[in-house]
Amino acid sequence: MVPLSYYLVLSGILFACGVTGFLIKRNIITIFMSIELMLNGVNLSFVAFAAHWHALAGQVFVFFVMVVAAAEAAVGLAIIIAVYRTRETLNVDQVNLLKL
């Protein structure tokens, strides 16, 4: 028997790792993977709460999160390819055309 709070702590740690990766990484693909890590952390708390409150709707929500993540990955990676074609770099520090 595992307390609900353990699952929440694990999901919080995964989310914190995702936020940190988003902030400290400079490769645009790794930043994108950090976002996926955050989505996974949230999914874990959805499933844990679904088991805790005996509400199956929580698991259905995980599917919607996965669908949105898949759509986001397809569009995001296409944007990364387009950025690489025009700027020839994957470093976000060098994609600074809008900077003053």
């Binding site: 028997m1 929440l8 919080g12 914190a16 940190t20 088991a51 805790h52 005996h54 698991q59």
Partner: peptide, 30 residues
Amino acid sequence: GVPGMLLGSILVAWVVLRHSGTEPVAAGAL
């Protein structure tokens, strides 16, 4: 960022462990 993340996750873990219900979730409960 790294110390800030560590501090933040320790704070969240402390609050969750302290204030959320500790009733266990059985294996395959749902």
